[in-house]
Design a protein around this nucleic acid. Sequence first.
RNA 1: GGCGCGGUAGCUCAGUUGGUUAGAGCGAUCGACUCAUAAUCGAUAGGUCGGGAGUUCAAGUCUCCCCCACGCCA
Length: 570
Amino acid sequence: MARHLITSAIPYINGIKHLGNLVGSQLPADLYARYLRARGHEVMFLCATDEHGTPAELAAAKAGKPVDEFCAEMWGVQAKIADGFRLSFDHFGRSSSEQNKKLTQHFAAQLDKQGLIREVSETQMYSHADGRYLPDRYIEGTCPNCGFEDARGDQCDNCTKQLDPVELINPRSTISGSTDLEMRETKHLYLRQSEMKDQLDRWIDSKTDWPILTTSIAKKWLHDGDGLQDRGITRDLDWGVPVMKGDAPWPGMEGKVFYVWFDAPIEYIACAQEWVDAGKGTDWERWWRTDKGADDVRYTQFMGKDNVPFHTLSFPTTILGSGEPWKLVDYIKSFNYLNYDGGQFSTSRGRGVFMDQALEILPSDYWRWWLLSHAPESADSEFTWENFQVSVNKDLADVLGNFASRVTKFCRSKYSEAVPAGGAYGAREEQLMSDLAAKLAEYEAHMEAIEVRKSATALRAAWALGNEYLQEVAPWTTFKTDPDQAAAQIRLALNLIRLYAIISSPFIPDASAELLDAMKSDDDAWPTDIKAALAAMPEGHEFAVPEVTFRKITDAERTEWQERFAGTRD
RNA sequence: GGCGCGGUAGCUCAGUUGGUUAGAGCGAUCGACUCAUAAUCGAUAGGUCGGGAGUUCAAGUCUCCCCCACGCCA
């Protein structure tokens, strides 16, 4: 048994995420965590909300609430939705936690000690009305190049020339519209990632088994143009981790906070501390400190492609550069984007299905199955209602759900609601078991390699084996001449339901639990020995006929949802 | 403009280090079955593997050019 640390990219606090966000990190991470637990491994699965930065401040202001209150509220909302999707985090933390604040300040001090922090003096625009500095996109004005009046601080959308905010003519705040602005000299800390370039390069080179998407993005940032650039890790904001050198003040940095991208990944570690402080565990260091027991931990991160640079370069710089024995990631599984019906999901325009809405219209298993079996692994993939309806109806209702239905109902009508006695297994049953063992081995191999789509394909094929067997031995026909033989066939089929429930649980945990419950079995051990697993429910074992495990999505529903989610969020 | 992931049957996708007649699921057509959520099982038909050139005894699979879509960047 191995020990696995798994983290999902932490969703930003600002609003409810859409299905594309879900399938890009949290959902596949949950699949992997559930699978590993089912196989008996020790798993620590962590996620949190990413709460700092300007967007949170603005959203709070819009909601008319103090930012900390707003974040606490939104954390509750996200936690509830995550629970609705059965995301099995061992802890769902917050990047604004006290633990993360301390740890972020600690890392900054360590990096400074290692000579990896430098101070840079810059000129920025300060807004008196807003009482704050205005980062690039929070300032607009007339383009000095083409005269376009709505040029943004970082770039003119009209002539595409890149700009410095201080160059804008008649600059104004996009927050308040105020023109009472002033250029101010301000100091910031930069993380000297460029110093780590060669080390990071060798590290990435050694990861030959990582997804191409992961390594190609990392390589691009390492080698593009002048190579890896140093990155500013402080901001002139109120909402964030105050810039401190450990417990000590950082001269010249008063009133500043760390940039959200510096403290967010550190929350992966702080989250484990929160897990302990919440009374869920006793020792977080054995997961994160290689000098304190984390040597045998395998650490896997899940994320969408937009997060790859931070996880392959910035965060490793923090970890490696600290000079301390922190656990470094072993495998990064990255995902492309999920598109919605011919375009992108759009949070601002309310285009596509958001997590809360998805749960309103269908149980989480429907979404989990479709999203995972269509995960954007090799390229961007697309959600369409037609595809969703057809896939879910066919795979879940017809192939799996109906199998449980036809077997249990046949048994109830011809025998009783208990595993029937009589007959014996022959060559066809041996064949089924060996086919199943082979398919299961294939499924396990894909799961261990985190090949999500291929895992789903193998699982579905395992379900189909049951229908193929039934169709061939036709117990409804056998029953007329040899009830004992039919009993043996049904006995095997009933046991298949239990087995399917167990191996399907990483994908569809609720339905799996329902089926296992209907089979009145509390033995959910992974079937390492097919023959033994298919004998777990002996003759006479009682069961219940399950309710319709998966109902079908109707054409009317499909049409209705298609219209409902096409444009503006209600 | 630069860069990146892709462009394989109607749809969603597999195709290992180049090697016999290019695969799967869905959909379509036909057939079988009737236990079951009009479910299941089988069979068949569908592709000059984006286009062109090249390397090779042999290319979807390598090289070059071009086209298309999506994304990232300054």
